[in-house]
């Protein structure tokens, strides 16, 4: 388990599939997190492994990937997986905090839920 700062954002694949929420492509575009190579190793991860990301606001299981992010930072594409753990507090601005949420990640054997499972309708 390591402490991380979570940021979320757009990716080209998320954008390409955003009007096809129930497609395999969308699922693959939003269900992972990018982790710094050092952190990836620290967590003993290998390609295709899954991690549980936990913040004050919730937790979610996603696939782990090495990405070009600083140590201690993970990136999750915007979408339903990211929003399980983003801050719902708008601090009075109306805008929830989608970037810079403190949390922790650890390796897990649990499966990644489908978007419908995530919503609790399946």
């Amino acid at each position: 388990m390591i402490e991380v700062e979570v940021i979320t954002g757009r990716t080209i694949d998320q954008g390409k599939t955003v009007e096809e929420k129930f497609s395999e492509e969308y699922f693959n575009a939003v269900n992972y997190c990018e982790i710094n190579e050092q952190d990836f190793k620290k967590l003993g991860l290998r390609d295709g492994d899954r991690v549980r990301v936990k913040t004050d606001f919730g937790e979610v299981v996603v696939y782990a990937k090495i990405g070009d992010v600083p140590e201690g930072v993970i990136f999750i594409p915007m979408g339903p997986y990211a929003n399980r753990i983003t801050s719902d507090d708008t601090d009075g601005t109306g805008m929830p905090r989608f970037k810079g949420i403190i949390g922790e990640i650890e390796k897990t054997d649990e499966p990644v839920k489908s978007v419908k499972q995530l919503l609790g309708v399946e």
Binding site: E19, K21, F57, P80, N83, S87, P96, V115, L119, G120
Partner: peptide
């Protein structure tokens, strides 16, 4: 919003009547 709002906000959508206008099915 069901895909793009923080989860706690989405939960209230389950409690109230929701009307959607959209070309595409989504969450």
């Amino acid at each position: 919003p069901a895909a793009h709002f923080p989860w706690k906000a989405v939960e209230h959508m389950k409690n109230i009547p929701v009307i959607q206008i959209d070309p595409f099915p989504n969450m």
